[in-house]
Nucleic acid binder design. Structure first.
Length: 590
RNA sequence: GGCCCAGUGGCGCAGUCGGUUAGCGCGUCGCCCUGUCACGGCGAAGGUCGCGGGUUCGAGUCCCGUCUGGGUCGCCA
């Protein structure tokens, strides 16, 4: 059908007869001579139609007509080269034009110079993806898949597909449910991740598994969250934490090297969860920003200021913030209130070092003296404080830190920063998490109930659950969690003990994931793994602002697909057949 | 579930303090044009101002409700 790809034509093709096929990206009709930018997957080439029959035929071409053109490659007349495009030195003089199919007037311009709303683009995503930028993103994602597969293949991994119609797994998010026609009243769940299956594959002796796996979670969506998303899922036998982290680094390094032209310094630094929370107020710190929180609990241990008589007092400095107008300081209060805080206390450090602001008047003379130094502030800075329960206060300061970074332009947007967060707690107090499905104990698993304690804790974690550390790791890039995993429990006694701490009875455990416990009875190998948030990684590599840009057919915030119109009502017949309304479920009722 | 922002020809936007015929750019259609490359010139068509109610002599504009989209907090191990 065609002899060449349009985007590959160069000066060396001059004089050759070629046949191209593609779309009319743009036309410039001068009457006697007509220029067409012909676009195919490889790029764009200019086609020229001159006088007479050819010009006549080309007059009727419109945007996005699908055409086939035969002609001769010629050097452009001197001075008419276009340096903007790769084929800019040549053009194709057409002597044959075949319209393969016509296009209706477009619902939105495909011109990359213009901004178009997202909803209309998603409704006609097949047009949106014709835009070279969008198309390049799709191809880049394909490359990312290829690179990851190459690294894993090279290291002896086996790609295995796991079910998408399965049983609800213990992962905390809400499941998407599918009625089982053959067992009315019983339901499949779509997997939130292949977590349990990959562990079964380790018991099965695969030793090294991976999968580019679709996962489903029925929660509210965000710019960086979709109801269905993709993980690069990996599990390995006979490994410890360093082995999995090393494997993860090789994949990430290959991706960034090939797709971003960035060589990640190895090894990627590690930060303990406790340090991350203490110094940055988050478990996914953006280390492009060097700003750190200061802990002032001890400094204010005898303070007369009521607000600072709290289990934790901390601060973060806004460089140059002393010069903010009052209005802006008020805006910070609003900002904090929107995050559920009472406000954001502040002290302004004058150029002469004197402190001002409401807080400065309430603290003791002695406290004023060394405060700037203790908080790490310079003259002209603003110090923000948070006091209260450590977790909440740090979270507020961490968010403030990032807001300061953004608003003060302290973040180098072209930089990449990677860090592993390790030594997270194994358990957290259940009071805040509304996790009803996973046991009735005071404690809930921070990762999931199959995460092993670290070697230091594995023999006595139950004696101090709040302090026990998990053999788990998250990798963070520029403040985004792009992957995480853990070493799993492979000893039945340890697993029983974890369930006991979580308040999960043996009966409950049997009911929910007896199949995994059964499997662990048959000589399970020590194993662990990691899962990468594939959409998020592609988003970062593509420099996109939204996951929707790196997903071929994404959904909107309401879980709606503007293209297909899903979800959609079903007919009464479908409803009856699916067994959605079955009165008496078989098997054990909830 | 809470909060913030937006919704005006196909697309992107303007519309002042509530006032008479709702503008602009792009696109579309017609005519013209032999070196453009986001071509250019002339002309034309195209609107239930998201939807419902209210206030008013009068509502795109103000009020209430609602829907949709985006962001954010909760939520998402």
């Amino acid at each position: 059908m065609r002899s060449h790809d349009a985007g590959t034509l160069r000066a060396e093709h001059a004089g050759q007869t070629v046949t191209l096929a593609g779309w009319v990206a743009r036309r410039r009709d001068h009457g006697g001579v007509i220029f067409i930018d012909l676009r195919d997957a490889s790029g764009i080439a200019q086609v020229v139609f001159r006088e007479g029959e050819m010009a006549q035929a080309a007059h009727r071409l419109r945007a996005e007509y699908c055409v086939r053109v035969a002609g001769t490659v010629a050097m452009r007349p001197e001075g008419n080269e276009n340096r903007e495009i790769a084929t800019g030195t040549i053009e194709v003089t057409a002597d044959l034009l075949e319209v393969l199919s016509e296009s209706a007037p477009l619902p939105f311009p495909l011109d990359e110079h213009l901004q178009v709303g997202e909803e209309i683009r998603l409704r006609h995503r097949y047009l949106d993806l014709r835009r070279p930028g969008q198309a390049a993103t799709m191809r880049m994602r394909s490359e990312a898949n290829r690179i990851a597969r190459a690294v894993l293949d090279d290291e002896g991994f086996v790609e295995v597909e796991t079910p998408t119609l399965t049983r609800s797994t213990p992962e905390g998010a809400r499941d998407f449910l599918v009625p089982a026609r053959l067992q009315p009243g019983s339901w499949y769940a779509l997997p939130q991740s292949p977590q349990l299956f990959k562990q079964l594959l380790m018991v099965a002796g695969m030793e090294r598994y991976y999968q580019i796996a679709r996962c489903y979670r029925d929660e509210d969506f965000r710019a960086d969250r979709q109801p269905e998303f993709t993980q690069l899922d990996i599990e390995m036998s006979f490994v410890d934490q360093d082995d999995v982290i090393g494997m993860g680094e090789r994949i990430v390094a290959a991706l960034w090297s090939e797709l971003a032209g960035y060589e990640i310094a190895s090894p990627i630094p590690r930060l303990s969860y406790a340090d991350a929370m203490g110094r940055y107020g988050t478990d996914k710190p953006d280390l492009r920003l060097s700003l750190e929180l200061a802990e002032l609990t001890v400094y204010f241990s005898d303070t007369p200021f009521r607000v600072f008589q709290a289990p934790y007092v901390g601060s973060v400095v806004m460089p140059g913030g002393a010069h903010q107008p009052r209005r802006q300081l008020d805006a910070w209060q609003e900002w904090a209130k929107q995050r559920g805080a009472k406000g954001l206390a502040y002290v302004l450090v004058g150029e002469d070092g004197t402190l001002s602001g409401p807080v400065a008047r309430n603290i003791a003379d002695g406290e004023r003296e060394g405060l700037a130094k203790a908080a790490g502030a310079e003259p002209g800075d603003c110090i923000f404080f948070a006091a209260g329960e450590a977790g909440e206060a740090r979270r507020l300061l961490g968010a403030a830190r990032e807001e300061i970074g953004r608003s003060c332009g302290l973040i180098d947007e072209s930089a990449w920063s990677f860090v592993w967060i390790v030594d997270a707690p194994l358990f957290e107090l259940a009071e805040y998490s509304g996790d009803i499905s996973m046991g009735a104990g005071r404690w809930t698993a921070l990762h999931h109930p199959f995460t092993s304690p670290t070697p230091d804790w594995v023999e006595h974690f139950e004696s101090d659950p709040g302090a026990a550390l998990a053999y788990a790791y998250d990798i963070v890039c520029n403040g985004n969690e792009i992957g995480g995993g853990s070493i799993r429990i492979h000893r039945a006694d340890v697993q029983q003990c974890v369930f006991a701490v979580l308040g999960i009875s043996e009966e409950d455990a049997r009911e929910k994931f007896g199949f995994l416990l059964d499997a662990l009875d048959y000589g399970p190998p020590p194993h662990g793994g990691i899962a990468f948030g594939w959409d998020r990684i592609c988003m970062l590599l593509a420099g996109a602002d939204s996951l929707r840009d790196v997903i071929a057919f994404p959904k909107t915030g309401g879980g709606y697909d503007p293209l297909t119109g899903a979800p959609a009502p079903i007919t009464a017949a479908q409803r009856a057949e699916a067994g959605v309304d079955a009165a008496k479920p078989r098997g054990k009722p909830e």
